[in-house]
Amino acid sequence: MTATAWWGAIAGVGLAIIVGAYLVAVADRAIASVVAGEPMRSSILAGPARSVALGLVQSRTTTERPDGAAWALAPALYLGLAAAALAVVPLSETLLAADIENGLVLFGAAQALAVIPVFLNGWSPNSILPLIGAFRFIAQALSYEMPNLLALLSVSVPASSLSIHDIVASQHGLWNVVRLPLGLPLFLFAAASLAFWGPMNLPDGADLAGGTQAETSGLHLVAWRAGRAAMLVAAAAMGAAAFLGGWLGPGLPGWAWMVVKTLVLLVLLVGSRHVAARVRAERYVVISWAVLIPLALLNVMIAAVVAL
């Protein structure tokens, strides 16, 4: 890759994250308005920008003896992992930030590493409720990781490749969402869990007064929320590429199909927050291990049979 290509890739991923995170905030407000039966206000579009401005104006607070370095590192790391995950997803047949052979594994590794920033953000402030949130997320992460990786793995079998480009190409004629019907729901479950969004919001729940973000304010909080939104965007883009045939589709140019499919998944993910109550921690773990992992294994077997 030339230097220009490097800068282009970085700028592209950065732009995708900023635009995507903003879209998540807008969609969240819009769906909330619909659910609450309120008229659409102008604040739906402008509100996220105002909140970011508030984050820039507001000071950071500190707790008694926090691990300041780790605390500051957490949102940056989370955003960075979301960017790494997004970088391997191709926007069209030729437009891809990081074209590597093992794109799927890189995506999985970035998702697996997300445990670390979430744990750090809860553990560093040295306060009990964020700490409990941090431990909850570890339990949650250990539960969703297996279904997540197995769901990702299943799409690589028909493609005989770990490259996401090949995986999209393998869906010519038949999308994975039809070929592997269990894959997409499992993947979306893991995606919502990864961003601890909506029903999977165990570490940041209201019962912990905000959990891992209970002690944060100002820019830190904005960065943390942006990281969550970026994770959702990365997951939605990956879901579109791996299960909905990425850039494949009639009429429109490839990138437009990709954007449309990503937005559909994004709205599904964001909307789950307003229709489903938070799952209990115990039930979450039981469901993940006792139901979803067998389903994910079944999904891999279907993939193997299909590929034969």
């Binding site: 769906i31 909330a32 308005s33 659910v35 609450a36 039966g37 309120e38 909506g198 029903p199 919001n201 729940g205 209201a206 019962d207 927050r273 307003h274 229709v275 109550a277 938070r278």
Partner: peptide
């Protein structure tokens, strides 16, 4: 209660 379970939009509706 709805807010506690993360259903903020519904909580706003019920509060109204």
């Amino acid at each position: 209660l709805l807010h506690l379970y993360g259903l903020d939009a519904l909580a706003r509706l019920v509060a109204t």
